[in-house]
Amino acid sequence: MNLKELPFSMKPVGWFQIAWSGEIPTGEAIPLKYFGHDLVAFRGEDGTLRVMDAHCHHMGAHLGHGGKVKGNCVTCPYHGWVWSGEGKNVEIPYQEQTVNKKLRVWPIIEQHGCVFMWHDPTGSPPRWGLPHMFDSFTEFSDMSEEEFYPIFPHGTRRWPNEPVHPQITFENSVDSMHFRYVHDSPMDPLLLEMDIRENDTVFRTLFGFKSLRTKEIEMVFDTRTTGVGCSFNVFKGAYNYRVLFSATPIDDETSELFNTIWWPRRENDSGDIPEDIRQRIEKEILTTVDEDLLVWRNQKYVDRPLLAKQDVKAFTALRKWQAGFYDLPPVED
């Protein structure tokens, strides 16, 4: 996909996944890059995760490459300057005076083992919250997080450096027929419901899958897409797992895709995901993104697509809603 030809930028406003919590243990600093920004993520002794601009204001060293966590701060690997989790220079080891210049601190949320970062080109603070994989679906399914195996590391997979715009990936959320042709679905998909929620920040769809034999709906799944970054999906019926799919721009040409699977625990099993379930997840679920990527990598964006009658309302509503996450004015104090 030629991202330069798209009618929208790679800098939408919203929440985007940047990691899984298990990747950043206490006392470690790691490098990240998203939205064209070099970042450092580190977890202090208090267990709190911080994400900041990565380059030390002294000589420009990257704090994520060799930087050390000191208390709740990160130390530059080049000359030992210490930067707090609030972005302040709090120590220069060879002089008493510090500098009055801050590193940018990025808003983040950690929930159900995933790390999300707020991105807004205007620098405005978060304008809305995130759906929750469990709290947001209580009217649809009352299963709790404890009833699922831990997600990390065996229920996770990422695809870095993909020439794909996040908005394209989330058009699947209203595309019932692609399940049959891209994923060879053994059941017939049908879009049952569609609405916009939570002050226009969540696009919700409900799909049903009919048995090809009985023609009865055997499985439904509820999807909550927030902005153009994350899609929370709960399956109920023939399967009862949950999936978080996320797409986060790295720069103006590539994105990183994340897939996270919550699989129900077997009765009286309090351990990690058993090997047979891991293989099933890999074969049946994680590979679906590989199948989508065969299309996404080579797709040309059609601004005014020729749509089947059943798709007109859903695609039109989704694209109109997605347009609201670009070029927002700054939030006034």
Results as ranks from 00 to 15, higher is better:
Phe207Leu: 11
Arg213Asn: 10
Val243Asn: 04
Phe232Gln: 07
Gly237Trp: 01
Asp252Val: 06
Thr226Phe: 07
Asn259Phe: 00
Trp263Lys: 00
Lys236Asp: 00
Gly208Lys: 12
Leu257Phe: 13
Thr254Glu: 11
Ala238Val: 08
Lys236Val: 02
Arg204Cys: 13
Ser231Val: 02
Gly208Met: 10
Asn259Asp: 00
Phe235Asp: 00
Gly229Asn: 05
Ser231Asn: 12
Phe258Lys: 06
Leu244Met: 11
Leu212Met: 13
Thr225Ser: 14
Ser255Ile: 13
Thr225Phe: 01
Val202Ile: 15
Val228Ala: 02
Phe245Val: 14
Val243Lys: 00
Val228Tyr: 03
Gly237Met: 06
Ala247Asp: 02
Ser255Trp: 05
Leu244Lys: 03
Leu206Ile: 15
Phe203Met: 09
Ile217Tyr: 13
Glu218Cys: 07
Gly208Val: 09
Asn240Val: 03
Thr214Phe: 10
Phe235His: 08
Glu253Ser: 06
Phe232Met: 07
Cys230Gly: 05
Arg242Gln: 01
Asp252Ser: 13
Thr225Val: 15
Trp263Leu: 08
Tyr239Ile: 06
Thr214Trp: 07
Phe232Lys: 07
Gly208Ser: 11
Asp222Phe: 09
Glu256Tyr: 01
Thr205Glu: 02
Ser246Tyr: 01
Thr223Asp: 15
Lys215Tyr: 10
Gly227Arg: 06
Glu253His: 07
Leu206Trp: 08
Cys230Thr: 14
Pro264Trp: 05
Asn240Cys: 04
Ala247Arg: 03
Gly208Ile: 09
Arg213Tyr: 09
Glu256Thr: 13
Leu206Asp: 11
Phe232Val: 09
Asn233Cys: 10
Glu256His: 05
Ser231Thr: 11
Arg213Gln: 15
Ala247Gln: 04
Leu206Ser: 14
Ile261Leu: 10
Ile250Gln: 14
Phe203Gly: 01
Thr223Ala: 13
Ile250Arg: 02
Leu244Gly: 03
Glu218Tyr: 04
Asn233Gln: 12
Phe245Tyr: 12
Trp262Phe: 15
Asn240Thr: 09
Glu253Pro: 00
Arg242Tyr: 00
Glu216Trp: 01
Lys210Trp: 02
Glu218Thr: 11
Asn233Ala: 07
Trp262Ile: 07
Ala247Val: 14
Gly229Ala: 12
Arg204Phe: 07
Thr226Asn: 08
Thr260Ser: 10
Gly229Asp: 03
Phe232Ala: 05
Val220Met: 14
Thr260His: 05
Leu244Trp: 04
Trp263Glu: 01
Asn233Leu: 13
Thr226Ile: 14
Leu257Ser: 01
Thr205Trp: 04
Thr248Arg: 02
Ile217Gln: 11
Ala238Gln: 09
Ala247Asn: 06
Thr260Cys: 12
Val220Tyr: 11
Ser255Arg: 08
Ile217Phe: 09
Lys215Phe: 10
Ser246His: 05
